[in-house]
Amino acid sequence: MIEDMKSKILRLKKEKKAVILAHNYQIDEVQEIADYIGDSLALSKIAMNVKEDTIVFCGVKFMAETAKILAPDKKVLLPVAEAGCPMADMVTAENLRKTKKEYPEAVVVCYVNSSADVKAESDICCTSANALEVIKSIDSDKILFVPDRNLASYIKSQVKDKQIDMWQGFCIVHNRVSEDNLSYIKENYPVAPILVHPECRPEIIEHADFVGSTSEIIKKVKELKDKKIIIGTEEGILYTLKKQNPDKEFILLSNKLACVNMKKTTLQDVSNALENDINRIEIDETIREKAYNSLIRMISL
């Protein structure tokens, strides 16, 4: 059944001149049929340069929106319309406009995990992979960072010469990792290195051996000689980690590191999107142009 579905998708992809992008947090079967797998930054860059007419984005809505912002001439399909991001919903363009008035001198840095409307109200975007570089590149010493307070807190600990005011949003998955989880892991795997995503809470990051984005964690694992490694990010990353490091064992820092929204997309959904041209991403051109400017300032770094 699965193999038949994969064959159908490959056929449809060729017929529709489509390319499939999948985030590292997608289910294994979806990652297997993707042309490109990566984190937000990598997939954003890929979206700008694909030659195919259609992009099927296996991820959540803000990711598909980002692809459309960067590649407006492409048809962008999101296999599951309801695949959203709770953190992205924690900030709206209207609320951001009001808050900007309270910080008139601040440069607004917007985490890519946000809607097109919010990106349009921001000065520059960032991802977890390049947030530190983006913040350091800004001339102003006053920053308003939206919407992830945990990523902002981590950056703040690394950049002492800037005032960083943070929105109180968070990733519901990474924010679940608790000190109890940490204590259990340290007791049962005392010598295993702990690699965590900066969307985790500060008290978790404080005890990590390495803090990095999805792509940075994947790269770091390759460099480590340890045979047992603790992973503190969404469990979908294990697909790539196991594939690239068959000789290593990976233990999740928490048993709750699964994003329900990322797991909504199935092979059937990908097939339906391709076959029926459903869930097309459309963005108002005025909003798109403003959001594009915020994204391209990031990418140009």
Rank of each mutant, 00 (worst) to 15 (best):
I69D: 07
K68Q: 06
N261T: 11
C259R: 00
I218S: 05
I27D: 09
M166E: 14
I237N: 00
S178Y: 12
K119L: 05
K8P: 08
K225Y: 09
E249C: 06
E94S: 15
E216P: 08
F210H: 10
R288P: 10
K219Q: 14
A93C: 05
E285A: 08
P198H: 01
S44C: 09
E199S: 03
M1Q: 13
S254N: 02
E102P: 09
E206W: 08
R11Y: 09
S115I: 00
D165M: 10
A18N: 03
K225D: 15
W167Q: 10
A42C: 10
Y239C: 12
I9A: 01
T54D: 10
L70N: 02
D28P: 13
C200R: 06
I27V: 11
N175D: 15
T214W: 00
S254T: 00
K13E: 15
N175T: 09
K160T: 14
V196W: 06
A273V: 02
N261H: 14
C171V: 03
G169F: 00
A93Q: 07
Q168L: 11
K142A: 06
I164W: 01
D139P: 14
A106K: 06
D247G: 13
I230E: 08
D209N: 12
E285H: 11
V211T: 15
K264E: 15
K225E: 15
V112S: 02
T286P: 07
S213V: 03
S254H: 09
E32Y: 10
D269K: 07
N181W: 12
N255Y: 13
F250S: 11
F145K: 09
E199F: 00
L21C: 01
V112N: 02
F210M: 07
S137K: 02
K248E: 12
L267Y: 04
N24T: 06
N175S: 13
S183H: 12
H197R: 11
N293C: 08
S254C: 03
E133K: 15
D123Q: 08
K98M: 11
T286H: 10
A120F: 06
K263P: 12
Q244C: 08
E94I: 11
Q168R: 13
P202T: 04
K242R: 15
E223Y: 04
A291C: 09
P246F: 14
D209S: 02
P202R: 07
G232L: 03
